[in-house]
């Protein structure tokens, strides 16, 4: 009858508290790192090349965080509607374009020409599209996984 001793003698309550603390600390860390990134870029005027590795890690981390939340069903999605996906896609494009414009033409003296801005816009449209597509696929797969488990 005696149950096997769990890892580090943690029971469900210990694990629950540990997960909560880890989640909060993770959130604070990511938020602080984003803050440092913006501070370096806009307040100190450092080039993105000075902390590219740092930015890539943060971006990948955030992308995978949202992907995992979608796949494992932490974000409640009852029905996947095309209209909502398109609205979300449009919102990302608008935000990305605004951020790019402010980054280059407000905070940097040289600024970008219209041709360069359009080039950046195309990159934003393509990359945002790929990200949204990736998230939609993960949402569908996650939803299907749960539905299959319910059928068993």
């Amino acid at each position: 009858m005696k149950t096997k001793k769990p890892f580090l003698n943690m029971d469900e309550r210990n694990r629950q508290i540990a997960y909560q603390v880890i989640a909060i600390m993770y959130f604070i860390t990511i938020l602080s790192m984003q803050g440092v990134l913006l501070y370096r870029q806009f307040a100190l005027g450092q080039s993105i090349h000075d902390f590219e590795d740092f930015a890539i890690i943060l971006t990948i981390n955030s992308l995978f965080l949202i992907s995992a939340l979608l796949y494992f069903g932490a974000i409640p999605i009852q029905r996947i509607k095309i209209t909502n996906i398109l609205l979300f896609y449009a919102a990302i494009i608008v935000l990305g374009s605004l951020f790019t414009y402010v980054k280059y033409n407000v905070f940097q003296h040289q600024g970008l020409s219209w041709e360069q801005l359009i080039d950046k816009f195309i990159i934003i449209v393509v990359i945002s599209g790929l990200i949204v597509l990736f998230w939609v696929i993960l949402s569908v797969l996650g939803k299907r996984k749960i539905d299959n488990e319910l059928e068993d």
Partner: peptide, 26 residues
Amino acid sequence: LAELVGATRQTLGLIEKGKYNPSLNL
């Protein structure tokens, strides 16, 4: 009891006091 069910004494104490909601498995 805690050892028999694979929990800690603190958790058992909190359940008895109604300050922790255990999972259905526990």
